[in-house]
Amino acid sequence: MISNLKILLVDDDKIMLFLHEMFLKKSGILNDTVLCYNGLDALQYLDNYTSGETHFLVLLDINMPVMNGWEFLNAIAERPYVNRVHVVMVSSATEESEKKKALNYSQVIDYQQKPLNVESCGRIVHSEMLKGFFEDFTAE
């Protein structure tokens, strides 16, 4: 199961990428992580990924240059791998409207405010949609 899930961290803020990677590890999530600096980077990675078995957990920022989070969500909607992509929006925005908008996308399974921490990473791991990917290992 472990090899079937890759984690994409998508944010234009390198410090935030570093922090989120650290917190995921501290939460016991040892899956491969891929760092992307905008939506387009992440889209290109997914487009080029050849295995049809792998699922992806994308921790997606909203406001980014080149391709923002919304544009990324729209772009993957028509992709063949869309059902293997599970997105957690991770944003600085505090507006409730942003959260509602995000949860209207079928691929979005959760909405978290920055910064993530060990506790919020734990909530992601135990979410209904992702539970199967992590049940074999939860490093406490």
């Binding site: 803020d13 410090i15 935030m16 922090l19 917190f23 600085s92 925005a93 505090t94 920055k114 910064p115």
Partner: peptide, 10 residues
């Protein structure tokens, strides 16, 4: 919130 959340994480 960008620098603030960064500070909170750090």
């Amino acid at each position: 919130r960008a620098p603030l959340s960064r500070m909170m994480g750090l």
